[in-house]
Design a protein around this nucleic acid. Structure first.
Lengths: 245, 245
DNA sequence: ACAAAAGTGTTTCATATACACCCATGC
DNA sequence: GCATGGGTGTATATGAAACACTTTTGT
């Protein structure tokens, strides 16, 4: 980075400065569909349209800190939830014309959440909702692109990481875990083979002791598991065909 | 991103604005070692120390455009080389104290290059050199961290992408390609098995027609190949043990 | 009884791994 | 000849895919 000093005649107050923002693609699995956390914009531009939650990075904040703060502000999710969230930097969007008002560079993050705390609007967001992926008109700014990138990234990470457990509550059944893969990838997985794969991967999941079992309604009650210590998946769990959308 | 409007009383000229820069981790394989393109800083802070090439993003540039421009300026690499370069965004570094002068958010890129056009200093860089990875004192700013992230990312991408060919000249032998993997991963690979893997992966490499062969000095001359159309590696080529450094 | 989901077992096939071995060149 | 790296073949182990079957619940 950083030329040692700014270029000849450079004055950082001389031209329109950059604003730096964060955008969050918060994903969850609900009713066998991938859902996205969106907020409804209260002001122009794009007033009334859906957008990703996010906002300006403050002078003494890192991007990640700003992401957590904005998420808490705009969705009313409990502080404990937001703090414990698995946040991952996606990439940075810097097209000069991505915001009609001024030069805005935005650092996008992805978060995977389990249950479904119903959000509420707040801060600069008129409303906040979980919406099924793709069930909305075009989003504000370049947020459709960001969301598509996030989905692609998450789908890929499921293959070689244990990230899928981030979509599940603290204790979950193998059926719920499999549901995550099937929903994100849009395919059906063979139940027996999936079970074997998960259980034989060293630190992927840890069985919850005792006979506690949970019924998902009908069918045989399933054993409960917690996320294990492992973070990588060796060997990976590859999606059946090339890549889906 | 982008709260619909800035917070109450927000004036984007009122506080110290953000500067946005790019940093480049340009890697190559040379003499069986991973090398990094570094520049020597001419000014404070960190004057005289090694740093990644990079610099300020201009008002009408995207980060990627800025990255190519800065690379050309600071290293004197030919325009054609810089334009054709495989540039990939790594991540963005936004710690408020990462630059002692002011608030600087930096978007880091990774580039993999084949041959070794000797660079020369230019722009704000007193000197530019290829240095073996790790053969230098601490770099300026948080550049050690960026470089470590870049190396980790590249090592991981070799597993499931055809990126390794980016380290090779337009025509290369399978031995050279294998050398890339061995150097980046720091392991030895079985030659016959590597060959099979590469040749049976549909679009990884394309044989160069005719009997043209290249001698690497001693040993049997090797057939030449070009990079194929494929970009992903299915199934992946996993490194032997977990992960190396 | 039936549907639905969990859980176990088995068979088959693809792929990775570990070698042994021959080939063509420089010295 | 010998060292060096390219190229071929093969046997074995490991893991994935497909599928048949049993178990336990709700209705």
């Amino acid at each position: 980075m950083s030329t040692p000093k700014a270029p000849e005649g450079y004055d950082r107050h001389a031209f329109e400065p950059f604003a730096v923002t964060v955008d969050l693609a918060v994903l969850t699995v609900r009713e066998e569909r991938l859902h996205v956390l969106l907020v409804q914009r209260g002001q122009e531009p794009y007033a009334g349209e859906w957008a990703l939650p996010g906002g300006f990075v403050l002078p003494r904040e890192s991007a990640e800190t700003a992401a957590r703060r904005e998420l808490a502000e705009e969705t009313g999710l409990a502080g404990a939830i937001v703090e414990g969230l698995h946040l991952e930097q996606l990439r940075t969007y810097s097209d000069p014309d991505r915001d009609p008002r001024m030069r805005v560079v935005s650092v996008a993050f992805t978060a995977l959440v389990p249950g479904l705390p119903e959000p509420r609007g707040g801060g600069d967001a008129a409303e906040a909702r979980w919406l099924p992926y793709g069930s909305y008109g075009p989003l504000a700014f370049d947020h459709d692109r960001i969301l598509a990138d996030a989905r692609e990234r998450v789908g890929a990470k499921l293959e070689y990481s244990c990230l899928a457990t981030a979509f599940c509550p603290p204790e979950f059944t193998l059926g719920e875990l499999r549901q995550v893969y099937e929903t994100v990838w849009g395919v059906e997985l063979d139940r027996p083979n999936f079970r074997r794969k998960v259980l034989t991967t060293p630190g992927f999941v840890r069985a919850v002791e005792g006979p506690p079992r949970r019924t998902g309604g009908r069918g045989k009650p399933a054993a409960l598991y917690r996320a294990g210590e492992a973070t990588a998946l060796h060997p990976p769990l590859l999606r059946p065909e090339g890549r889906s959308t």
